[in-house]
Design a protein around this nucleic acid. Sequence first.
DNA 1: TAGATTGTTAATCGATTAACAATC
DNA 2: TAGATTGTTAATCGATTAACAATC
Lengths: 207, 207
Amino acid sequence: MGRKGISEAVIKRLPKYYRQIKMLDDANIERVSSSTLAEILGITASQVRQDFYNFGGFGQQGYGYDVKNLRKEIAAILGLDQEYNMIIVGAGHIGKALAGYKGFVKEGFRIKALFDINVQEKTYNGVPVYPMYNLEDYLKENQIDFAVIATQADSAEDVARELIKNGIKSIWNFAPIDLRVPKDVVVENISMSESLFVLSYRSKNRT
Amino acid sequence: MGRKGISEAVIKRLPKYYRQIKMLDDANIERVSSSTLAEILGITASQVRQDFYNFGGFGQQGYGYDVKNLRKEIAAILGLDQEYNMIIVGAGHIGKALAGYKGFVKEGFRIKALFDINVQEKTYNGVPVYPMYNLEDYLKENQIDFAVIATQADSAEDVARELIKNGIKSIWNFAPIDLRVPKDVVVENISMSESLFVLSYRSKNRT
DNA sequence: TAGATTGTTAATCGATTAACAATC
DNA sequence: TAGATTGTTAATCGATTAACAATC
């Protein structure tokens, strides 16, 4: 049940809303208006209302938005109302950093295993590390929702193929390469170097 | 000398152009047309020409773009035609991963030091690790261009203040928080969890 | 009820795409 | 020269903002 017609721009703002609303909720704030939320996020109140309107709107005229409800709604939209099992392919610096990061578990993303060509340790931060040749069997025996590619660029394409062949439909890609995947497979790229280059650009072109 | 009127959308595409053009150059391809580049990047030829036109345009009618020249031009726009000194504050999983990553040095970003409250090792991957209380003196004695914040969210704001107080004008922020900085300070955020949530959304709302 | 604030449509703005003259 | 492809302006499209009726 794909929500059709939600633009990229809106989707990218959803996690930002979620983070701020969670903070309001954690601070025991009960309600918030579109204008307050807009000010926190540095956008317009109109945009906040328009964004929520895309999903039906979950406010109340004359009152604003109930923070707890808003949190629940946006969590559901983002799919954060359930738990997921993840594996990480590539136990280099980035793969290990991800495996060690506690923040993901809090939101329901469980890291079940690391895979690498060279297995240096049996576990890393409590996460088992397996050799690459076990990947196929592992995926057959375990229900895995997301796979993270944290390999070098030159092996990322092969890893993706292997993952997809074994039923993975959602890939979080840290390798600096555009993966070619069938259209039923979702890929979200995160590029450190692109971000660093943008910083470099902005530093050079300060307003 | 700020280039005025370049939109966010264009800026975000620049690193993508750079990566592809570098690949073409490394493959010894001498020239490329806007339509070829567009196809590689999955955008329109019109957009490629329009984007480059923002910076004056560096092609030749009837020929296309000279790859070597294009690489040089875009590198210069992004500020990749010089070297930078960086420090990383926060020697946790992410800080260490960044310190260990070789890719940045290749593009001229040298990681000179790691700082943390708790210094576990004297060096990490050849990068010296210093205690936080040395930060001020270090910044006075060394010419540092960029600082990376790789701490927890709750100390990021304090770290930013300290960095700015000691002359840092460009911050690469990995902490999941919007830093409040004076307007002459540039901040580029990179948010793992935002990216993961977008993946989650797309998985749930497959077209 | 009066005041506040959303939901929702309409207007505006900016980014993308199309078109084609310029020119290599 | 003829063909190719850019630079550049104009047209289109989509996203943001404004406005206000609905309603709590």
